[in-house]
């Protein structure tokens, strides 16, 4: 009998610290599967963000550095420029990439840095306790929008992926979701393409991953998946953006 599924070699065999139903575990695994399939583990250098996924290096078995909050793409830019033969990627949350790090994100993209970005959008700050994120939906309740996000006061959910498509340095942008096995398979394909682009020196590639945060959405893991499908992906439509 053929073996069709196995634990990815570049994913460490360890117990998760993420909350039940969190999307990071799936996203970590997808990244590791792609890295194994492309046989690039030994040349990968990853940049972990500040946010829940700062401890990504506890799961990933390849070279990895932390970056200060929002600065992952500045760190990645320099690593790739001094070691162009390595495969360099950042893994960043919505607060990291689209609030405190917006400047670094836009300018790395605009320089067309040959990098891969995995952008986890869960519409909330997880690590600090469920505050409003730049991508929090209108009406969504968080620790800092107890009455729900009022767009007249807190502004609108920031569609950074769409913004980035305006920049000539950007090669590829796609929004995917972890809401179902079908979408997860699509997500993996997108992540793979984003790494292949870097291998082919095609330029800046970003995959936005809509990912569940049951803890701060106040929903069960199953209902969280349904919420992405029924609510979140209406605001953040899935598919290739560029």
């Amino acid at each position: 009998m053929d073996k069709i599924y196995a634990h990815p070699g570049s994913l460490r065999n360890t117990t998760t610290h993420y909350c039940p139903g969190c999307g990071h575990g799936i996203a970590h695994k997808l990244v590791c599967q792609v890295i194994d399939e492309l046989a690039i583990r030994e040349s990968v250098i990853a940049i972990a963000p500040v946010g829940c996924a700062v401890l990504a290096y506890d799961y990933w078995d390849f070279d990895c550095t932390e970056a200060a909050h929002g600065r992952a793409l500045a760190v990645a830019t320099a690593i790739k420029r001094v070691r162009p033969q390595n495969i360099v990627f950042t893994y960043q949350g919505d607060g990291d990439l689209a609030a405190i790090g917006t400047n670094e994100t836009i300018h790395a993209a605009n320089r067309g840095e040959n990098l891969t970005v995995i952008f986890i959008n869960n519409a909330v700050y997880g690590m600090t306790g469920g505050q409003m994120a730049p991508t929090t939906l209108a009406g969504q309740k968080t620790a800092t929008t107890p009455l729900g996000r009022d767009v007249k006061i807190q502004g609108y959910p920031l569609k950074i992926s769409e913004l980035l498509t305006q920049l000539p340095g950007v090669c590829y942008v796609e929004r995917v979701s972890l809401q179902s096995p079908t979408e997860i398979i699509k997500a993996k394909k997108a992540i793979k393409l984003a790494f292949e682009n870097q291998i082919n020196k095609a330029g800046f590639s970003l995959v936005e991953v809509l990912s569940p945060c049951p803890t701060y959405w106040g929903l069960s893991p199953v209902k969280s998946m349904a919420w992405i499908k029924d609510v979140m992906s209406k605001e953040f439509p899935l598919g290739r953006i560029k």
Binding site: A67, A74, V75, A76, T77, R81, H107
Partner: peptide, 14 residues
């Protein structure tokens, strides 16, 4: 300047 010093961080890490 924030980006510059964090780029230095990256290059040094490499």
């Amino acid at each position: 300047e924030l980006a510059a010093i964090n780029m230095v961080f990256g290059a040094s890490a490499a």
